[in-house]
């Protein structure tokens, strides 16, 4: 359904060029969930926003349903946005505080020319779909809890019957007991409406739960991509290994046995990414060659992709 080929997005700043997304390639099949994980600044959000064309890509190709949308003229964008929608991280900042819940969900219907007579019914239907009720349509965002606001954001995204939804950290700002509610709802909606998700997050256990395949990003590049079970049970790239070993496990015995493989330091600046394999400055297994060797994502067998040249 979606093919992303060597996508690049740079930002010019007074300090220089930030390599936010630096040659990212993946595909998403219809009806699946691709998880995109990585730490802050790795470019996962920029990747999502570039796919929906909130940012103009600098290089590479985005192919959606067989159509090249990389350089789509502005007048064609409306049609594309009907097919690809987005759910945002912060349910407090992504809803207009001066609009009622009903108006927020109705707005995309107006923009996309949905028949006026049917709009009210559709808003009711959408609110019910996400577990809210029609009586709540007249309330303002501040009258809802964080979890309920995220439901409003989801209803808005579903309003125009999209095929692909980019979920950018949709549960990170929510409390633990509410996260499971939203994740279950996203799974039900996917099954019932045939949706496809790009699920961007840094919570690795939740990503494993919801995704069919997972891509791990580091400093603008995908370092590993595999079936979700495969990635978690048999991580190959030293970064993935370390990342997985850092997840705190809610089980004291397992936690005590866990061998955390520490990473030295923090993510280098994307202003001036390290040469060669850009992970070599923190890699516990780095060799001399890693400073110069180009790290390219390649298949290690059965669709398990890894960019480490020594795997």
């Amino acid at each position: 359904m979606l093919d992303v080929i060597n996508l690049k997005k740079f930002f010019d700043t007074p300090a220089g060029k930030i390599h936010s997304v630096d040659g990212v390639s993946f595909h998403i099949n219809r009806g699946e969930t691709l998880g995109l994980v990585g730490e802050s600044g790795c470019g996962k959000t920029t990747t999502g926003r570039t796919i929906i064309k909130l940012y103009e890509p600098d290089e590479g190709k985005i192919i959606f349903n067989g159509q090249d949308i990389t350089r789509l003229p502005p007048d064609k964008m409306l049609g594309l946005r009907k097919k690809i929608q987005m759910i945002f991280q912060d349910p407090y900042a992504s809803l207009n505080p001066r609009m009622t819940a009903g108006d927020i969900v109705r707005e995309p219907l107006i923009i996309h020319g949905f028949p006026k007579k049917e709009q009210a019914d559709r808003v009711d239907y959408l609110l019910n779909l996400v577990g809210l009720n029609s009586e709540q349509a007249g309330r303002y965002p501040h009258e809802f809890s964080g979890g309920q606001r995220q439901r409003i954001g989801i209803a808005r995204a579903l309003a125009v019957e999209p095929e692909l939804i980019i979920c950018d950290e949709p549960i990170s700002a929510l409390d633990v007991s509410i996260q499971a509610q939203i994740v279950n709802m996203l799974e039900d909606l996917q099954k019932n409406l045939g949706l496809t998700y790009l699920f961007i997050a840094h919570d690795l256990s939740m990503v494993k739960h919801i995704s069919s395949r997972v891509a791990v990003m580091y400093l603008g590049k995908i370092v590993e991509l595999a079936e979700s079970e495969e990635l978690y049970s048999r991580p190959l790239h030293p970064y993935t290994v370390s990342l997985l070993s850092s997840i705190p496990v809610p089980d004291p015995d397992k936690s005590d046995k866990l061998k955390n493989i520490p990473l030295a330091g923090e993510i280098p600046s994307a202003l001036n990414p390290p040469s060669g394999c850009n992970f070599h400055t923190r890699c516990p297994k780095a060799r001399q060659e890693c400073k110069t060797l180009e790290a390219v994502l390649k298949d290690t067998g059965a669709g398990h992709l890894c960019s480490c040249p020594f795997i």
Partner: peptide, 15 residues
């Protein structure tokens, strides 16, 4: 309500 990454996935039980 939290997923256990060591177990096969099953539906979460929210509060």
């Amino acid at each position: 309500s939290v997923p256990d990454p060591d177990k096969p996935r099953k539906r979460l039980i929210p509060i």
